[in-house]
Nucleic acid binder design. Structure first.
Lengths: 148, 148
DNA sequence: GTGATTGCAAAGCGTTTGCACCGTA
DNA sequence: TACGGTGCAAACGCTTTGCAATCAC
């Protein structure tokens, strides 16, 4: 189980990664990166916009979209698919992790699956498909939301 | 493994279900139901519109959306989430089945998972989440697409 | 006949693009 | 200084809504 403690490192890492990829570090970008890198929740563009404007008031929504595009391309963030929409983003994780999402507050945790390879192998054989990727996501209510 | 053979029954069943729910059976609805109930692929609104107009030429796109709404509400169809979009629909299945989707032609198969309960139990205990639902989807290339 | 259903047109919403100005490197 | 990045406004694509005409029951 891996959660998102408040984490200055991630903020710094993302900025370094952007710079290393030839992108300039600007006020709007820093604000968007800070909002998303510090969040344990999946956030959509508008939520990021609202959060990031607390830090950089003249931010435009367009810059949010353009920054998200770059962060996704660098695989620093990933899109979260949920029954009620697929517009939210969360910090990405390296390796293949699976998502556990709170349906009330949006909090996301990552967990490692049991070894699902035997299942995939079986399905591949029975179906004739060549399997390239998989999604395993759990939806529920987190401890905090259950109590409150 | 369960696929979608051409299946007149499903067409008839859906129409009966619509009628039983108090909806009227009209030309536009019949055309949309036929297009989607006979398809083994995930189809989006425009694709359904194009297919259904072969049967009912004056069909409006709006009626496609309104029919999809009702079919989804009756759980006769379900939305398919994929990395490149979440606008497509496929015939729903009763019980908890998992999806196997061809990334080239969109063909969908259903499979039953191994018993994943022990995994969910473990994750629930470690995380404190109450787990309500899960998604397991495999993406790949179907036999037919692999052959060319 | 009556009320649900239709297609059209327009509105709505989230996202992307064009452009002139600005600011990082 | 050069050119990548910015915000604004407009365009875009998909979906929903308002409405008068139509059609299933």
């Amino acid at each position: 189980m891996t959660s998102f403690p408040p984490c200055d490192d991630r903020n710094t890492d993302w900025l370094a990664c952007l710079r290393a990829s030839g992108y300039r570090l600007t006020g709007p970008r820093r604000a968007v990166v800070e909002a998303l890198s510090q969040s344990g929740r999946a956030l959509n563009a508008t939520e990021i916009y609202d959060l990031a404007r607390e830090r950089y008031a003249s931010l435009g929504l367009v810059s949010v979209y353009r920054t998200l595009e770059k962060l996704e391309e660098l695989e620093l963030i990933q899109r979260v698919h949920q029954p009620d929409g697929c517009q939210a983003f969360i910090a990405g994780f390296t390796g293949h992790q699976h998502l556990l999402i709170c349906q009330q507050c949006g909090h996301v945790e990552f967990f490692e699956g049991d070894d699902l390879e035997p299942l995939f192998q079986r399905v591949a054989e029975e179906s004739g498909y060549q399997i390239c990727d998989h999604w395993l996501q759990l939806f529920g209510v987190c401890d905090q939301c259950r109590r409150g």
